[in-house]
């Protein structure tokens, strides 16, 4: 499975440790919250709310250099807007992978 990394952030940081740490702090805070929002939306079968949060999450995949996850999310967001939740299981694997990664940084 594709692994997240901080290559993009490091490129932008150009050695700016404060920026790097600030970003890590924000993503460690935002990501788990967005994960909960997503899970609740799926649980309630609110596919539009789920699509909205997938839209946000896919941007984070981009930042974490996860091109495959981003492409997957683009399709999944459209599916959700068509009220289809079949891709949820695979999407949750991606989210779980990121949660594990965030524990390491």
């Amino acid at each position: 499975m594709e692994q997240p990394n901080l290559n993009y952030i490091d490129q932008l940081a150009e050695g700016d440790i404060e920026f790097r740490e600030k970003f890590i702090e924000i993503i460690k805070n935002e990501f788990p919250q967005e994960l909960i929002v997503y899970k609740n939306a799926i649980k309630e079968l609110n596919t539009i709310a789920a699509a909205d949060i997938v839209h946000k999450l896919k941007h984070k995949f981009n930042i974490l250099s996860m091109k495959e996850a981003y492409s997957f999310s683009v399709i999944y967001e459209d599916e959700l807007r068509a009220h289809k939740v079949d891709m949820d299981k695979d999407f949750q694997l991606i989210l779980g992978n990121i949660i594990d990664y965030l524990k390491t940084i």
Binding site: L12, F19, I26, E30, K56, K60
Partner: peptide, 11 residues
């Protein structure tokens, strides 16, 4: 609306 995105543009 995303703090991470604002931080990146600010950087």
């Amino acid at each position: 609306d995303e703090e991470a995105a604002r931080l990146i543009v600010s950087q």
